[in-house]
Design a protein around this nucleic acid. Sequence first.
DNA 1: GTCTATACGCAGATAGAC
DNA 2: GTCTATCTGCGTATAGAC
Lengths: 202, 202
Amino acid sequence: MSTRRGPGRPPGAPAARREQLIAVTIELVGDQGYPAATLGRIAEAAGLSKASVLHHVPSVAELLAAAYEQVLASLVAEVGAAVEDASATHRPGAYVIAMIGYFREHPRHTRVASEALVHLGRPGESRERWEPLARLLEQARTARRLPPAEDLRTAALAIGGAIDGILQEQQIDPSYDSARAAELLAGALETTVLSPLGPRPR
Amino acid sequence: MSTRRGPGRPPGAPAARREQLIAVTIELVGDQGYPAATLGRIAEAAGLSKASVLHHVPSVAELLAAAYEQVLASLVAEVGAAVEDASATHRPGAYVIAMIGYFREHPRHTRVASEALVHLGRPGESRERWEPLARLLEQARTARRLPPAEDLRTAALAIGGAIDGILQEQQIDPSYDSARAAELLAGALETTVLSPLGPRPR
DNA sequence: GTCTATACGCAGATAGAC
DNA sequence: GTCTATCTGCGTATAGAC
């Protein structure tokens, strides 16, 4: 895995600098928020000049996007694996626990992900925010031979929001036991969307 | 304590300009987010020069804070009234419905409130974020002669987060029926924190 | 109270030498 | 690849005339 760049440079490792820049960007955003991730500060943290930074990356905005993408990819990989390890019946609960667990293990990724929507200004397709979880909920109900639930969109949005609330609290107060909270939330799932009745109108 | 400065100026209306500035600030933030609430844009929207704006307000930061305070005060007043109109047993549900209803009636206030934590950077006492709702939950359980619940902090954080998730969706997709979602969420409350068992460990 | 003009800082980005 | 120097734009805030 030599990273030398003379002739015969392995084509797989050209972007070592870029990786480093993404790494320091994640650190900056994770520790001090997006406003701190400025060209000057990124350069300083990487031990380069501003011009050099822009030699490796087209723009600051692109770098921020790349940092976010990397965090997201890592999150999806880990949560996805945890979910697939569970039986269909327990996947919603596994999702909740894996999601909260991920950010507890990677505290710096928390702000990168949570403030991305606001600072990178991606209104984004709302659908992709709640649909994955909605799908898990639906599959779990089917596996339990329950009838289709009332409003999976709202259920998924509410659960996702609840996760965010717990993560936010863990960030503000690191002594907060988010692991236990995740267990509680997963348990509450059983008595609502995954119960025979599902979310009910009244 | 007369604040008059001209002959016969009604003492109750000294800060008309300030009120106007707060109003346009809320409009700007509500429609385009905090980054859009710049001195220049505020001045333009108010029909003043930048210098004039700063004649009525000490700084842009102070103006942003004032705008947020006003939104918050209005929210607290309306939700507080709705909650007090309900019996102790139904106050948590009333809270959820009033909260979501408020932002549906005042769409512009949504971003002002939701992005405040990020942009005005108030780590704030975490306690005051969840404690009011936790108190309502506790009172409701008592009124129903139920034993104390497991973890009211987590319950309140989860419910608060769920509300945020629903509000966010309403903002992204105005056709989303957040009123119905509020009803569903309030209903789900009954089967979890307000049920005989309360949130359970497993 | 209101304005124009100006100062100042900091952001992102480019030019061009080494 | 890396640097220094520079440009440009935008943000806040102040000075001082009217």
